[in-house]
Nucleic acid binder design. Sequence first.
DNA 1: GACGGTGTATTATAGTAGTGATACACCCAT
DNA 2: ATGGGTGTATCACTACTATAATACACCGTC
Lengths: 127, 127
Amino acid sequence: MYFDLQSESSTPIYRQIVEQLRRQINGGLLGPGDALPSVRQVAEQHTINPMTVSRAYSLLEAEGLLVRRRGKPMTVAAGLATESSARQRLCLLQPCLEQVAREARQLGLSPDEVVTLLVELMDKEEA
Amino acid sequence: MYFDLQSESSTPIYRQIVEQLRRQINGGLLGPGDALPSVRQVAEQHTINPMTVSRAYSLLEAEGLLVRRRGKPMTVAAGLATESSARQRLCLLQPCLEQVAREARQLGLSPDEVVTLLVELMDKEEA
DNA sequence: GACGGTGTATTATAGTAGTGATACACCCAT
DNA sequence: ATGGGTGTATCACTACTATAATACACCGTC
């Protein structure tokens, strides 16, 4: 529900969780005070180990994005700018876009061709 | 020179080499018969182990993109369609674009904003 | 206060993946 | 044949990942 985890991926599960949460928070999909699903809940849903989820949560707490209050679910930290500016969010996407630019160049593809497909994919995802 | 390797990246070096070569070949940047830099040459240039490079080369040989002739440098295979169609090359880029779409959605970014930055990056890379 | 709900510390284990050092096999030109 | 150029097989080491089984500390509520 919350996460889109791929066990086949080479990027470790805990990191997938971290990155997805970070984006969902910065993007406003999750707001300050919102409660996260419990580690056991997530673990069962994806048949992974609770400690793996805990590891992800802990990293985000160290990062200041999450707040832990013992006995209660993890929540999104309040101190954050409720939603960062579009410019800031765009910065988070930049590394991924640089990768696209690099690959496109190596493939000899024009910006037009790339953009067309990208827009198509983004519209599809919308639905 | 040939490769743009990032040792900090979580994707292993040998795989970075594999992917970059595959794209350069499919994109026509490297043509049939072209010789690759020797494993030791690449290794020294990036201060990595020759075996790491060899591993990448071997994978591409198994894939049919490279040809090994003992004692001589690896070369790009001849059998390949010299340059695949733009549509085929676009397919190679698709996974990366899907990643962008996913992240953009989580960040709450509109296609417009994303495309603008992407084009900017691609133009810059050109120079 | 007992219970069921949070997250976590601890320890141990297993598997996997990436990298590295060395020595080898081969080709070719001298 | 010898030397310098290929790529590579082998082995070992290190780091990381994920899992597991407990046990703990805390909160809220019944």
